[in-house]
Design a binder for these strands. Structure first.
Length: 421
RNA sequence: GUGAGUGUAGCUCAAUGGUAGAGCACCGGACUGUGGAUCCGGUGGUUGUGGGUUCAAAUCCCAUCACUCACCCCA
């Protein structure tokens, strides 16, 4: 086999798709209960959208995007995240004027050309939420509560930790970055090589270094939570007050860093055990400046995205068993096979699933297949049944069987489906 | 981009320089129109690829590719 899938891409075979359908269905249910509505946005966008939103100097834009020139000569990019497209769509469709308050969610593939590892692929899938139009801390609290309840719905609340932080406004952040950089310069030679580089590229990352020595050296570095302006501090305090009031557990982590440039004020991560090094299962924050950066009016907004592969790693595959047909046909002879197809169509139209082998195999082989399919009933159709217009219905859970007129098959089965064996 | 580990049947793994095997799965038979349990049989391999050492290589050496995990970065 010389043709292989690309590195970091995966096939989801039928044994795995039930779990994905489960994730999607459960998420839709919770998100819509909070008033969020689904949007479906393009996978391919103008490259400039991501350069302007994510940040020119980020790793994502600098070296991880799937960017190419299409045959029309335009530079286009497979979306590496969802927020940029959502804001673009919000602005482009005039929502800022017609319906400025909007709660959106989306799910689907994102693409980043990173080195694959546990919980990280080049095509990965996110469920994302964007809440447009409210600058109030109540919006932050709603989104955080929604995030938590979403994972609670999957039964994961006792395995997760919510961490929150504030980045202040852009002026706060710029001032803080310079203060931090100055502080770190004094420590430069004692820090690890990665951190020495980070002082210049992204000083906030130094605070997030995994090396114990770096963490000790930066223990008394200035904290962003103490450096933000009065308004931002009040906003953050109010968010925490609401979270406390509704009983949502969280931890303030002033060292938490965001990878995308557009975040301001509240940011957060949901961390999980058992995911290896990629332990953030969801993350997000407020991005009040993004709409303007993309050429629109100011639109206060925030959102988050969760990694579906990472969520899937936390779930028990048994939670989403494979679907089984209600019945399995056991036939002999070409006339019987044709009649079985006709009856399968009628059953399917009533929502009753039935499967069958399409090769003329022995009764024994077909019965074995019926058993393995998980079907409740075997529907036997051969010479005898064809002669008198009946189907022999065998209940595979009890072994008992009855002869049923072919015309009565649908009502017979529908009457018995509800009845446990 | 950097580092480490691993590559043998569809899957999980044996075979420590001397005939490439087992379990599971799949197909069939025992049981000619009746599943699950049991027993029997069968299909399935250029041992990732290329080169080297050797009388002889899955095994040792080199290269290369792939996968996995970690760093970086991030959901």
């Amino acid at each position: 086999m010389e043709l292989k899938k690309l590195k970091g891409f995966r096939d989801l075979l039928p044994d795995e798709t039930p779990l994905w359908q489960h994730m999607e269905a459960k998420a839709c249910q919770v998100l819509e209960a909070f008033g969020y509505r689904e949007v479906r946005l393009p996978l391919l966008e103008d490259t400039a959208l991501f350069r302007r939103s994510i940040g020119e100097a980020t790793d994502i834009v600098e070296k991880e995007m799937y960017t190419f020139t299409d045959t029309g000569g335009n530079s286009v990019t497979l979306r590496p995240e969802g927020t940029a497209s959502a804001v673009r769509a919000y602005l482009e469709n005039g929502l800022a004027r017609s319906a400025p308050k909007a709660r959106w969610y989306y799910m689907g593939p994102m693409f980043r050309r990173e080195r694959p590892q546990k919980g990280r692929l080049r095509q990965f899938h996110q469920i994302g939420v964007e809440c447009f139009g409210w600058a109030e801390p109540e919006a932050d609290a709603e989104v955080l509560a929604l995030l938590w309840d979403l994972f609670s719905a999957f039964g994961l609340s006792d395995r997760l930790r919510l961490e929150i932080n504030t980045l202040g406004c852009s002026a706060d952040r710029a001032a803080y970055v310079e203060a931090l950089r100055a502080h770190l310069q004094a420590l430069r030679l004692d820090l690890c090589p990665d951190c020495q580089r980070r002082i210049d590229t992204n000083p906030l990352r130094v605070l997030d270094c995994k090396k114990e020595r770096c963490r000790q050296l930066t223990a008394d570095a200035p904290r962003i939570t103490e450096a933000v302006c009065g308004e931002c501090a009040a906003h953050f305090a109010r968010v925490r007050e609401i979270l406390d009031r509704v009983g949502l557990a969280y931890r303030v982590n002033p060292r938490m860093v965001r990878g995308l440039d557009y975040y301001n004020r509240t940011t957060f991560e949901l961390l999980a055990e058992g995911l290896g090094a990629q332990n953030a299962v969801a993350a997000g924050g407020r991005y009040d400046g993004l709409a303007e950066a993309l050429g629109g009016p100011p639109v206060p907004a925030l959102g988050f995205a969760l990694g579906m592969e990472r969520l899937g790693l936390l779930l028990d595959p048994e939670a989403a068993p494979a679907p089984t047909p209600t019945a399995y046909w056991v036939t002999r002879g070409p006339e019987a096979a044709a009649l079985a197809l006709a009856l399968r169509r009628k059953l399917a139209a009533r929502g009753v699933g039935s499967a069958m082998d399409l090769a003329a195999r022995s009764f024994k082989a077909q019965m074995r297949a019926a058993d393995r399919s998980g079907a409740r009933f075997a529907l036997i159709l051969a010479e005898d049944e064809m002669a008198d217009g009946t189907v022999t219905v065998k209940d595979l859970s009890t072994g008992s069987q009855e002869t049923v007129a072919a015309d009565d098959l649908i009502s017979y089965l529908m009457g018995h489906i509800a009845t446990p064996a």
